[in-house]
Write a protein that binds this DNA or RNA. Structure first.
Length: 491
DNA sequence: TTAGGGTTAG
């Protein structure tokens, strides 16, 4: 492959060629087979665009992987960074780290790519320790570095460090839109909405959509719905802003503005945007308009896992477990050929739908399919949902068996939510002996949720252990734990 | 030549 072949690969990615997916894939295959024969093809100008193109064609990944690992140590920084980024996007953290570790020269962009890699995996603490390493090693920061570090701080609610980064940005005169947008996100995630407004006020952002949207999102997250509407009204409509609008309506259960926003989305031609359409489905569902939600779902051209999960959740939460289950089966049938499969959130919605409609066999089938069919390890939230389902259906033995496995195998999964589900199951089935064991576990976990105390206290009262019940109530008063208004699911 | 700000499901 000659020098300059990178631009040829870049042309493959031009918008005009995107409609010719098959042709593009064929060209990429050709590039790859040549590269396998001649190492020269891994030159810096050719390989990065090829790797970027691979994001759209996972079928090329395994060959690329073998090829890249073979030459990883000799890669040009740009090529290595593109490779690291590709691994990161595919969730292959180990491979990404290997590429990074073997890089003889790391520029700030390579470090930034590593930060993004951790953040994509939800490893905010690793991102922050990498950020500290950059500081110690004297690596130059870019806007993307600060932005990534702020994202990590937001996710860990690391207020102090985030504020230090803000101070550093001010010291260095960094008032870029990227840094400011990340600052708004960081402050909003930490509940410091006024700081978010202050950052926004200090930026000249007349024409920038992202920073407006960031502030709208900040208002939504902090339940400042009126202000969110007001900023929405003053900004130019774009797909992300409208998606935020639907989110405001969902969270405030106010479909009035949502219908207008829906019309605006159609008028502006945003109705082919899957993310936006998913928000529409959710908005109608949360506002109780299930048939509109279904209609909006059916009209989505390219459904993704969120589209399916939203509609399954919609039916489940409205007590239509059978339809939720049918949709889940339909998803499996129709979408597996498109490489689309349910994820952990989908299974939570399915389990909850089954639990609320007494679909025990279906719930069990989905719980075991998670690991056996899809390779997803059920988390504590899935286990507690399944235990809850079994308890409601009177299957206390099966629930107890699963609970026992969780407490023996991995104590990490024995969360207070799991204990609460098991305790509810014991109470509903009048199994006081087992309930007492679970109650002990719950106390050992040191849970500070007042609802758990009330549940425990009621449990002891039901068992005729009045002294125990009273002492728990006392402990609750002493610790000044108060039951939240409206939080009566356990009592 | 590689990274990088705002949006959707629990």
């Amino acid at each position: 492959m000659k020098k300059g072949s990178g631009s040829a690969v870049s042309r493959l990615l031009s918008p005009s060629s995107l409609s010719h997916g098959a042709q593009q894939l064929e060209s990429l295959r050709l590039f790859l087979s040549r590269a396998q024969r001649r190492r020269a093809a891994l030159s810096a100008d050719a390989f990065p665009p090829f790797l970027a193109a691979c994001r759209s064609f996972p079928s090329l990944a395994s060959q690329t992987h073998a090829l890249a690992l073979k030459y990883a140590a000799d890669l040009h920084p740009a090529t290595a960074t593109a490779l690291l980024d590709l691994y990161g996007r595919r969730g292959l953290l180990r491979d990404a780290l290997r590429v990074f570790d073997e890089m003889p020269l790391r520029d700030p962009i390579a470090w930034n790519a590593l930060l993004s890699c951790f953040l994509r995996q939800g490893l905010a603490a690793d991102a922050l320790s990498t950020f500290r390493r950059m500081t110690e090693d004297g690596v130059a920061f870019t806007g993307a570095t600060l932005s990534a570090a702020l994202k990590a701080c937001a996710s860990l609610r690391a207020v102090r460090l985030g504020k230090q980064i803000h101070a550093r940005a001010i010291r260095e005169g960094d008032d870029s839109l990227i840094t400011s947008t990340s600052l708004i996100d960081f402050y909003s995630a930490c509940g410091l909405i006024q700081n978010a407004f202050d950052v926004f006020a200090g930026v000249d952002c007349d024409k920038d959509a992202a920073i407006h949207n960031s502030l709208i999102s900040a208002c939504v997250k902090n339940r400042r719905f009126e202000e969110a509407f007001s900023i929405l009204g003053s900004a130019t409509p774009n797909a992300v802003a409208l998606t935020c609008a639907f989110s405001v309506c969902s969270r405030s259960s106010n479909p009035h503005y949502g219908k207008q926003a829906h019309c605006a989305a159609i008028r502006h031609g945003f109705d082919s945007d899957t993310t936006l359409c998913n928000a529409i489905v959710d908005m109608y569902a949360k506002c109780g308009e299930l048939s509109s939600a279904r209609l909006a779902f059916e009209r989505i051209h390219r459904k993704n896992v969120v589209s399916w999960t939203s509609i399954i959740e919609a039916y489940g939460s409205h007590g239509h477990g059978v339809e939720a289950w049918n949709l889940f089966k339909k998803m499996e049938e129709e979408e597996s050929s498109n490489g689309l499969s349910p994820n952990a959130v989908t299974f939570l919605s399915v389990l909850s739908a089954c639990g609320h409609s007494g679909l025990v066999d279906e719930g069990r089938e989905s719980f075991f399919a998670m690991r056996n069919k899809y390779g997803i390890d059920p988390g504590p939230e899935h286990c507690s949902s399944f235990i809850d389902l079994l308890g409601r259906a009177g299957r206390i033995e099966e629930a107890w068996h699963l609970y026992g496995e969780l407490s023996r195998r991995s104590s990490k999964k024995l969360t207070s939510a799991v204990c609460v589900a098991m305790l509810n199951a014991c109470r509903a089935n009048m199994d006081l002996a087992r309930g007492e064991q679970v109650a002990e576990h719950l106390l050992e976990l040191g849970d500070s949720n007042p609802a758990s105390y009330i549940l425990l206290s009621n449990f002891y009262a039901a068992a005729g252990k009045w002294e125990r019940a009273e002492s728990l109530r006392r402990a609750m008063r002493n610790r000044q734990l108060k039951k939240e208004v409206g939080n009566s699911q356990f009592v």
